[in-house]
């Protein structure tokens, strides 16, 4: 079988050279067996254009660095096989996040703010006692915490979210999922009312229009629809008690 020649149409813009306006640039590449967009982009950079900016770290769908719009949909480039696409593939940076250049966006800063805003750490008054045994926990509870904990903060849910695209203070599915992770953790002593302060507004869970693109786009298949419903239900009850 003859290998296909792929054409990648890639968004180009370097904020350091604003005189060159944003544009699309095409690159051609012979497809190889098992080629992913990670492999393709690195070959383009090394063989054709060393100025091309994009982000990869683990290249194994664990670190969440390489999300981009692939033919218009937010995807992790590292686990996108070219064989699942036609011979023309369009790559654009994720919307919502600040552009660093070409396909590279600043998800790191966005998610840092999210952690600060949702106060995403265990809140407890207990002191750590280095001499004591660990507190017991049901394994089922540990797994329940781990489920939302699996989010890799890649930004696919945010980029695909209608609300996040029109209002920059919206926490999005990743933010609400992060809050859900602490809500199910018995080590976190925050009350429903304290959580309400964090997410009980239209910046939080009441800003969601229920379009659920987040759930469709999550590369780690987090049950985001379920998590949003969980947080929303808890917060609706908390809101009624106020």
């Amino acid at each position: 079988m003859k290998n296909r020649t792929l054409t990648f149409s890639i968004f180009r813009y370097n904020p350091a050279t604003p005189e060159i306006k944003p544009h699309m640039q095409s690159y051609q590449l012979d497809e190889t067996t098992g080629m992913t967009v990670f492999v393709a982009l690195n070959r383009i950079r090394e063989e054709q254009d060393p100025s091309l900016m994009f982000d990869f770290v683990c290249r194994a769908a664990i670190c969440g660095s390489c999300a981009m719009l692939i033919n218009g949909k937010p995807r992790l480039a590292c686990k996108t096989l070219t064989r699942d696409y036609g011979s023309k593939i369009t790559l654009m940076p994720l919307p919502v996040f600040k552009l660093i250049g070409d396909l590279s966006v600043d998800t790191g800063t966005w998610f840092r703010h999210l952690s600060i805003k949702t106060r995403a750490w265990i809140h407890t008054n207990k002191e750590f006692d280095p001499k004591a045994l660990e507190e017991r926990m049901d394994n089922a509870t540990a797994l329940e915490i781990y489920e939302p904990e699996r989010c890799i903060e890649c930004g696919c849910c945010i980029a695909g979210c209608a609300t996040a695209n029109i209002r920059e203070d919206f926490l999005g599915a990743a933010g609400l999922n992060r809050v859900a992770r602490f809500m199910v953790d018995p080590r976190d002593h925050r009350t429903e009312q304290e959580y309400f302060e964090v997410v009980g507004s239209d910046e939080g869970v009441f800003g969601c229009y229920g379009l659920m693109a987040c759930d469709d786009n999550c590369p780690t298949q987090l049950p985001l629809q379920w998590q949003l419903a969980f947080v929303r239900r808890k917060m609706a009850v908390a809101g009624l008690k106020r």
Binding site: W121, I122, K126, F128, P130, A132, L133, E134, E135, R136, M137, D138, N139, T141, A142, L143, I145, Y146, E149, D185, R187, D188
Partner: peptide
């Protein structure tokens, strides 16, 4: 052992004995 328990205190959902 102290370090692993401190990680539990800080929030790691370690798998537990069943």
């Amino acid at each position: 052992p102290i370090a692993v328990r401190q990680m539990a205190y800080w929030g790691v959902p370690w798998s537990r004995v069943v």
